[in-house]
Design a binder for these strands. Structure first.
Lengths: 205, 205, 205, 205
DNA sequence: GATGAATGAGACTTCATTCAT
DNA sequence: CATGAATGAAGTCTCATTCAT
C-alpha cells in the first residue's frame, strides 16, 4: 500500500462516504459515526484528515461543485458554435435532476445552511457566479450579436435566468419527479429563447 | 393575562418564534430552548400545543405557505384580465425574495429536509402543485386562446416554468442579493413571455 | 348533586382510576395526567383530594388491602369450625390470583417500592401481620389442640407458611398462568397440611 | 488504565453499579446519572455498552438470575443423594433472603415490571421454570419412587410449592425480617415434606 | 497512521405541581 | 370546587471531539 498519495485517497473516500450519507439520511441527520461506518473507517481517523465536521461538510459541497463543473466542461465546452453550445448547455442543465440526482440532493441540503453559514454561502455564491460567467463568456463571443443582445448586463441576466430556470425546475422535479416532462420543458425553453433571440434584432431594426 | 382561550394565540406565538429562530439561526441549529426563549415561554408549554419538535416545524412550514398563498390571493387574484393577472403574478413572484425574504429563508431551509422527510416533501409538493394549478386555472380561462396555447399540458409547463424561474432566481438572489437586478429581470421575463404569446398564434395562423 | 359525601366518592373514584392505570401500565409508568384522564377529572382536582402523588399511591395500596381483608371476612370468617375455616382460607388464598388478579397486580407492583419507601413497607408489613394474626387467632381457638400444636410460635410459623405458599404460588401463577393447576395444588396442599395435623398428635402420643 | 479489551469488565462494572443503585434507591428511582456516578463512569459510555436503559436493566436481572443459578449449582448440585439434595436445596432457598438479600431486592423490584414488560416477564418466567425443572429432574431420578410419587405432574407441583413457599417466605422476611425464624421454618418445612414423603407410600401400600 | 473507548455538554421530552380563572 | 395552562427541573439519549493504546 502506498503511503504517499494516501492522504488524497482517504480524503476522497471520506468525502464520498459523507455524500452518500447526506443523500441517504439528510445533512442534519448524519453523525461522524455514520460517516465513519459508511467509509469503513474509525471516527478518529476522520479528524486526522479534516479539521472537524464543519470542515468536512464544506469539502463535500466543494467537491460536488467541482465535479459538476467538470461535467459541464466535458459536455458543453467542446462544442464550438455558441448557439449550439447554449442549447446543449440548457439541455445539460435540465438533465441534471434526472441524470445526477445526487447533485440536487447535496445542493438542496446546503441551501438552508447557506443563509447562516458564511462559508457555505460563499461556496454556493461562487458556484453560481462561475456558472453565469461561463455562460456570459461564450455568449459574449459572438452569439449575443447574432441574437441581437449588445448589452452585457442583458447577457448576464440571461445567464441568471437560464440557471434560475434550471434550478427552479430541478427543485420542483426533485420534490415531485412525475409532475412534469423535463424533456418537453427543455425543448419548449429552447423554443422560447429561440423566439427571443430571433425577435430581438427585428425589434431593433 | 388570561389562561383560557389562548390556544390559537399561543400556537401562533410559538410558530412565529420558531420562524424567527429559523431565520436567525437556521433550521438545524435551533433548539426547543431557543424557541421557548424567543417566544418568552417555558419549554414545557410548547409540548402542550405541539406533539413534538417535528410537528412544530411542520406547522411552521405550513403556516409560511398559507401566508404566501394568502398574499397571492390579495395581490394577484383581484385582477380581472388574465394577461394582466399573469404579468402581475410574475411581478409578485419576483418581488418575494426582496419583499418577503423570510419566506425564502423558510423555504430554502426545508428543501434539504424534504428529501428525507415525507411529510415535509408532501407539504412542499402540495404548495408547488397548488401554485401551478392556480396559474393554469386563470390561464385556461381565455388567455391561452388569446395567446394561442390550446394544449393544456403546455399551460402546465408554462406554470412550472414561471414558478421555476421565480424560485431559481429567488434562490440566487437570496444567496447573493447584489448580483442581479430583480426588477429588470422581471421586465425582461414579461417581455420574453409576451413575445412567446404574441408569436405563437401567428405560428398557428 | 350532593355536596356532602362527595369527598369520599371523589377519592374512591380517583383511587379506582389509579388502580386501573397501575394494572394497565404499571406503577412506575403512570402520570397524574393518566390518572386524571382515567378518572375523567382534571389534574388539578386530584391535588385537592390528595396531598401529592405519593399520598395517592399509598391510599391505593391501603384500599387494595382493605378490600382484600373485607373479602376474607366475607368468605372465610362466617365458617364456624376451625379446620373447615382453615381449609376454606387456603382455598380462598389460592383462588386470589385467578379470581382477583388486580390484587396481585397491585401487590407485586408495590413490593419493589417497599424496600425503599418506609410507608409502603409499613403498610405491606401490617397487611401480612394482620393476615397471620387472623390465622393464628382462629387456629389457636381449638384447632391447634385438635391438630396437636400446642406451641404458639408453631402456629405463627404455620400461618406464615400458609401465606408464604399462597403468595409464592400466586406470583408464579401471575407470571406464567398456564404452568400449574391452582386447584390441584390447593387440594394437595390441604392434603399435606392434613397429614401434618393428623400425624403430629401421634408423634406426641 | 487500558482502553482495549475492557468490554466485559465495563459491562460487569455497570451492571454491578446498577444493581447497587437498585438496592439502594429502588428500580424506579434510579437515573442513568446515578448509575454512571456509582460506576465512576460518564453517562455516555453506558450507551456504548448497552442499547438503552431498558436493555441495561434487563441485563441486571439476567445477571442476578445467572448468579443465583450458579450458587445453586455450587451448593446443591454436588450432593449425590436426592433426598439429601432436596433438603439441602430447601435449606439453601430459605437462606437466600438472609444470606443474599440483594437477590430479593432485585427480584422484588422487577416483579412489578413483569406484568407490563414482556421481556422482564419472560426472563422471570424462565428463571422459575428452570428452577422447577432442576428440582423435578433430581426428584425424578429415584427420590420420587422412594417417596412414593409416581406421577410426574405431582413432582412438578411439589417443585412449584417448594419454590413458592421459599419465595413467599422470602418476601415476608424481606419486608419484616424479625417476625419469623427462618431456620425454624426450614426445619419445620423439611419435617412436613418428610412426613408427606414417608406417609405417601404407606397410603399406597 | 489508525482505532474506538471515553467524555460531557446539550438536545428532546416528560411530568409533578401550582395557580389564575 | 374545578379546570387545564404553565412552569422548570430532571430524565434519557446523542454526538463531536479527544486521546491512550
Amino acid at each position: 500500500m502506498p503511503k504517499l498519495g494516501m492522504e488524497e485517497i482517504r480524503k476522497e473516500q471520506v468525502i464520498k462516504a459523507t455524500e452518500n450519507c447526506i443523500i441517504e439520511k439528510g445533512l442534519s441527520n448524519i453523525s461522524i459515526k455514520d460517516i465513519a461506518a459508511e467509509a469503513k473507517l474509525s471516527t478518529g481517523i476522520i479528524y486526522h484528515y479534516f479539521k472537524n465536521k464543519d470542515d468536512l461538510l464544506l469539502q463535500v459541497l466543494k467537491e460536488a461543485f467541482r465535479k459538476s463543473h467538470e461535467q459541464v466542461m466535458q459536455t458543453v465546452e467542446p462544442i464550438g458554435d455558441s448557439v449550439v453550445k447554449l442549447k446543449k448547455h440548457i439541455e445539460y442543465i435540465h438533465a441534471v435532476p434526472k441524470d445526477n440526482p445526487e447533485f440536487y440532493a447535496v445542493l438542496m441540503s446546503y441551501l438552508g445552511e447557506a443563509q447562516h453559514n458564511p462559508k457555505v454561502k460563499k461556496i454556493i455564491a461562487l458556484f453560481f457566479k462561475n456558472l453565469r460567467s461561463y455562460i456570459v463568456h461564450y455568449l459574449s463571443k459572438n452569439t449575443s450579436q447574432a441574437v441581437g443582445i449588445q448589452d452585457r448586463s442583458r447577457v448576464e441576466l440571461l445567464a441568471a435566468m437560464m440557471i434560475g430556470l434550471g434550478l427552479g425546475i430541478g427543485i420542483q422535479w426533485t420534490i415531485e419527479p412525475d409532475f412534469l416532462n423535463l424533456e418537453q420543458l427543455t425543448v419548449d425553453f429552447q423554443d422560447v429563447l429561440g423566439g427571443y433571440f430571433s425577435r430581438s434584432p427585428t425589434a431593433d431594426g
